[in-house]
Design a protein around this nucleic acid. Sequence first.
DNA 1: ACCCCTACCTGCTAGC
DNA 2: TGCTAGCAGGTAGGGG
Length: 300
Amino acid sequence: MGYACAINLPRQQAMPELPEVETTRQGLAPHCIGRRVSEVAVHNARLRWPVPESLADTLTGRLIQRIDRRGKYLLLYCEHEANGHVGVLMVHLGMSGSLRLVEPGTDRKTHDHLVFSLSDREDDLDAEPQWELRYHDPRRFGCCLWLELPVEQHPLLVSLGPEPLSEAFDDQHLFRLSRGKSAPIKSFLMDSHVVVGVGNIYANEALFRVGIHPLREAGGISQARYKVLSAAVREILAQAIERGGTTLRDFVNGKGEPGYFQQELSVYGRAGEPCVRCNKPLTEVRLSARSTVFCARCQR
DNA sequence: ACCCCTACCTGCTAGC
DNA sequence: TGCTAGCAGGTAGGGG
C-alpha cells in the first residue's frame, strides 16, 4: 500500500492549489449566488496588489450572479441592481489565502483582511446580513481586484494557457508548445502560459506517476509521453477536487483539509524517503528555488 | 524569444 | 527559553 504522506509535510499553511480553489468555488456558490453585498470592509488593502480604494463603493449593493474560476483566480460576477452593469470581483488566494463564510459578528481573526457582508436580495441595504464572506491571507500573496467585462482581456488573464481539466489540454497542445524549448519539463508544466493551475505539488506528483525526470528538456519529450503526462495531470487534479470536495462540502464555517491532504503524495515532501515503487531514496533538487523531488531510478 | 532570477510576505522550524 | 536565520512557494516582471 502507499504512504499517507500528508503527515510528512511540515506544519504550515495549506497552499491553495487548483483543487482547493475549485473546491472553494463550489463551496461558496450555493451560499453566495443571488445574495446582495450589503457591506464591504477592507481592514488591510496591502495584498499583492493594493485592493482598489473604490472597491467598497463599487461593490456595495450588487448581486452576486455567479462564481467562475480561471486557473487559480476566482471570478465573482456582480450585477448592479439599479443600472444592470456587471463587473467581476477577482480573487486569488496566493500562498496562504482562504475564503470562508461565517456568521455575522464572529470574531475577526488576525489576517482577515476583507469582509463582505451578504444579505438576501429582497432585503434593503440596512438589513442584517445573513453571512460574512471573509478573505483571510497571512502572507498576503493573494489579490482582490475589480474587473470590467470582458474579463478575458484583463492583463492577468489574457495570456493564460488552457484549463488542465479541459479538452484543450492534451498531448498535442503540450507537444506543439514545447518544441524548441530547452526549459526543464517541470518548469514548462508549471508555466501558466502552458497550462494553468499546476503548482509545485502536482508537478512533482504527475512527473513521478509517468516516470519523467523533472529536469528533462521539455522540447525533447515525445508526443506519446505528453499524452501520458497530460492524462496524469488531469487525473490527479480531478481526484484531489473530488476528495477535497467531500470534506469541504459544508463550507460554512468549514475547516476541511485541502485536497492534497486527502491524497497520497508519492514524492512531494518525501525527499530521502524510499520511492513507493522501487524503494530507492528519493532525490531532492532546487529548480527555480522550488523543491523538486523525484526518483532517480524510476524517472528518466 | 526564451529562460532564469527576484520580489512580495509571514509562519513555522531548526539551531544556537 | 528565547532569539534568529532559513525555508516554504504562486506569480508577474525584469535582466541576461
